[in-house]
Design a protein around this nucleic acid. Sequence first.
DNA 1: ACCTTACCCGACCGATCGGTCGGTCAGCAA
DNA 2: TTGCTGACCGACCGATCGGTCGGGTAAGGT
Lengths: 211, 211
Amino acid sequence: MPDPSPSSRAKLLDVAEQLFASRGYAAIGVSAVAGAAGLGKSSLFHHFPSKADLYATVLVRVVERIEGQVLPALVAIGDPAHTLDRVVAAIIDVLAEHPTSARLLLRSVFEDDDEDVIAASAASGVNERIAAILDKVSAVIEDGVAAGVFRPVSVPDLLQTVVGATVFHFASGDFGEALFRAPIFSAEAIARRKRELQILLQQGLAPAVRP
Amino acid sequence: MPDPSPSSRAKLLDVAEQLFASRGYAAIGVSAVAGAAGLGKSSLFHHFPSKADLYATVLVRVVERIEGQVLPALVAIGDPAHTLDRVVAAIIDVLAEHPTSARLLLRSVFEDDDEDVIAASAASGVNERIAAILDKVSAVIEDGVAAGVFRPVSVPDLLQTVVGATVFHFASGDFGEALFRAPIFSAEAIARRKRELQILLQQGLAPAVRP
DNA sequence: ACCTTACCCGACCGATCGGTCGGTCAGCAA
DNA sequence: TTGCTGACCGACCGATCGGTCGGGTAAGGT
């Protein structure tokens, strides 16, 4: 019991985020969510009009957290190489802060969901907000290529690689921990992940030295 | 209609792979699978003892396809840099060949599934077979570091990056296609993906030039 | 002709799904 | 006290879930 009275609605959002992240939308029933929040199923429908709406609200919360941490890193200060470093660090930080974020994002990306779910999440505009962030990251890479601090690359490919290397990593859960034989979300693991990815990108994107 | 009479059982596996990949285990009912295969629900249970067993069988088929293509690339011929190139190409080829593979893999990795599903897939040993492949990839990287053709890296981190950059990419579906504004599984897109990732890795892993 | 076997189906089972409904209860303003 | 309101719940709804059962049908062996 961490909080005395987290307003029930917030508690529902918390447990729903946790449950949806671990087992997916279809596998989690509304009574399971309500029960985990210490409420009856009917009380859940007092706070949210439908299961799909609850899920969409959870997604919006996650996207807002990401925006709050990644957008500040995207203001163009310093050369694109430093900006990219900051962005990668920000993405890793925000995904590491809430272990559920990466999984939820991953699911929302490649889950051809239930019809009312895609309707609800489309109405909340989460996809567009994610796309907006990625567009800005693309712009940073393009700037770097144009300025000659990065070698020419396929920007969408690099973006996919960065997203895969960050989101997938923190979404990998038991699989990742089995691979590392150590926790993924420890402070050292997070710092190492940041360092390894930044070095790989900086060195892998360096322009060819012209003799 | 590719095949005149694919033995019903194979047809069931095909449509189940497609459906499970697109919407996940919990979201797909057995009657939907059977119906898509042109059969009644009862007929599905004539071929498979349970839904979980059907899913596990689908997973095994996917893992076998991957083994068949990636393991040959892992025989140590040439230096580790070339081997890694071959492995990356093999992974991309096998994931691109069947658009369902990457999604199924991703789900099996981070889906804290239903209890009988984890039991069935544990009995089929798919996790161990995936782990065995990744262990061999790890060995290649370690050899490269030991031989000095790669700079020192955190091997699990690099492995996570490679898996994320390949599996996530081909599992991203509509999201990825929206990002590229072009199909992901076209021959050109696959070739480009291969090239971009190989260059990024080779250059990013090159040891520092000693003055 | 008979029996077996493989394959398939419709009807049905209990459980659970998302969601509704009527109503209880505490707090608060008048 | 009275009346109202937001939070909450138990009981219930039709639909669908995974799975069972008995029976039907065609092929093949003897």
